[in-house]
Design a binder for these strands. Sequence first.
DNA 1: CTCGAGCTCTTTTCT
DNA 2: AGAGCTCGAG
Length: 723
Amino acid sequence: MELDKLNEKQKQAVITTDGALLILAGAGSGKTRVITNKIAYLIEEKNVNPYNILAITFTNKAAKEMQSRVEDLIGIDSKRVWISTFHAFCTRILRYEASHILYENNFTIYDTQDKQVLIKNCMDILGYDKETLNIASVASEISRAKDSMVSVDDYEAEATSDYRNSKIARVYRLYQEELKKNNAMDFDDLIYNCIRLFKLHKEVLGKYQDKFEYIMVDEYQDTNYSQYLLIKMLSQKHKNICVVGDDDQSIYGWRGADIRNILEFEKDFENVIQIKLEQNYRSTSNIINAAGTVIKNNEGRKDKKIWTSSDNGDKITIYEATSENDESLYVAQNIRKLTEQGYKYSDFAVLYRANALSRKYEEAFMKYKIPYKIFGGLKFYDRMEIKDILAYLRLIDNKNDDVSLKRIINVPKRGIGAKTVEKLEQYAREHSISMLDSIEYISQIIGAGKAQESIKKFAVMIGALKAFAKILPVSELLEKVISSTNYENSLIEEKTPESQSRLENINELKSVIQEFERTSEDKSLSDFLQNATLSTDMDEDDKKSNYATLMTIHSAKGLEFPVVFIVAAEENIFPSSRSVLDESKLEEERRLCYVAITRAKEKLFITRAKSRLLYGKTNCNLSSRFISEIDKDLVINEKKEYYVDEDSKQAYSLHQKYIEKYKIMNEHKKDEPQDIKIGTKVSHKTFGKGMIVGKTGGKYSIVFDKVGVKTIDTSVVKLEILS
DNA sequence: CTCGAGCTCTTTTCT
DNA sequence: AGAGCTCGAG
């Protein structure tokens, strides 16, 4: 135990073990330290059995971090504490108790993409076109319903008078029926169904209530209603519930997080003790004060003031760039300058509001030879080839998974087209069986021919693989899948750099599976698939490597860096254009800004550009209101000297004229795609040197030395031919 | 059945 | 700017 290393408040938070405890932990106040020490304290001082402790986090990364820090404190006993994410926790329970809610325990978890595929499918069946009803918005509406425990019946009842909502209600109903038929659940269902299970079967709930004597929840400000309910139900017996959070860091309202949960914790639970951790150990005093002057503009927050005993440190540098190019070069130049003064590349982070902004900084870093890593974008398990292979494994594991079957029935191409699949699906629907099972009756469904032969062969292959699955470990099953589907070979034959990188990813999947077999307790196929769906790229961070970090502010939460650049601090970007008209959304943006500022330990730069090319258009945005909210005494303004004109209105109108002119010029330019042979070496003005490897119309696939494969439309961007 | 031209869309993102 | 999706031609 390291109780003596804690400050008074932290110590108090650790030793207050019984009853309901709300720890309001400001940024950088050592909250993980408090939770981990509390777990150790319960076990070592209070003789609580580790088996009776539950600690819940939002991300795998946070769970792993917590697990390893508890292990450092108490050793092997830490393995017996339940430390997991909400979703992993619910999955584990549902796997034991699936039969109570009429699911099979090898149910498949559908990720966001699978979910959208199935929703689109449902909308097709109902005859709703996506022009009137946008798939993504239906998906998110269904998510919000489940987050707030609104069942299909409830939703329908509320929606009767509303044309759009009653349509969504029908999609929701069909979608849930399809999930059930496929023996599948989406992410939201994991929590929704867990609560349904507890409500329906009090004896099951009782079992878990007995087990969890002490419950801890991290990042409580990010919980949604269903997560709140889950915690509340589980803690009902022992009533030892400790939640840790910071209302000022609630930035996930748009995905259902309810800030009310933390603001009204004291009403929701009995005899709540509240402890505030306000001392910041991370940042300089100037940074903390800047964060404070911004966040105080929000109404309706818990009263607290973070402070630090550190020195003032440097002032915050604000740079007003002329364009996004100027801005990105400024960032790169400053990083270069600071590395010469002894900073490492890994000390730097560039934080932006949206992933689409990252490219310019990437280019500038390449130019200045600064090693960097971009987080976000396409994740490993989202890659096409990985999803394909996993779809095979899912179908083998769960024959009812029609979504996976449809994904791979013609991958690699075996001459089974959309019409055939449609007929098969219809037959399956009419006879209430899975698509895989309906293949048995294929001769009744489609006439004899090439498609029928292919589909029979497909079914035989899946049958054989299922037999292998019973006797082989997952890693060997994977080999069988790859060889019998001819997946690898068809990629090898393609001989494009894309297929090359796909092959590499498949090899990566092989090592992921081997790693899983080495480390996991339950080595079953179901378990592997669930792990794969619930995990993400962010989980691993190699602290050893030396590179600058580029990421969105959202993904930076919980991290810290000696030097932080907050870029594109402009109205309509940060705060985003969709937030500026809505006071509560704007407050969330401001909290996001608070999170961004408090990531910095020593130096903070905030930059903005007077004009910016984004989503194919140039815009002139005003400086972010958040910049002006920072106390002027804490700031140094840097600006290009030739910007004499302070009147932004005038600058704006001049710029608009210039842009109009530029547009007209461009329209004339957009014509004649270039005709270049495959194999030609070319140069692109932003991606650098590369080689043409494929051609589709006027568009070329090009492997660039630095950035990999990109598709370039030469009627828009001209390429310089090198050889 | 497969390929390619032309259309639309674009915040954030963990699970 | 560029990715993804739909629809029509071969």
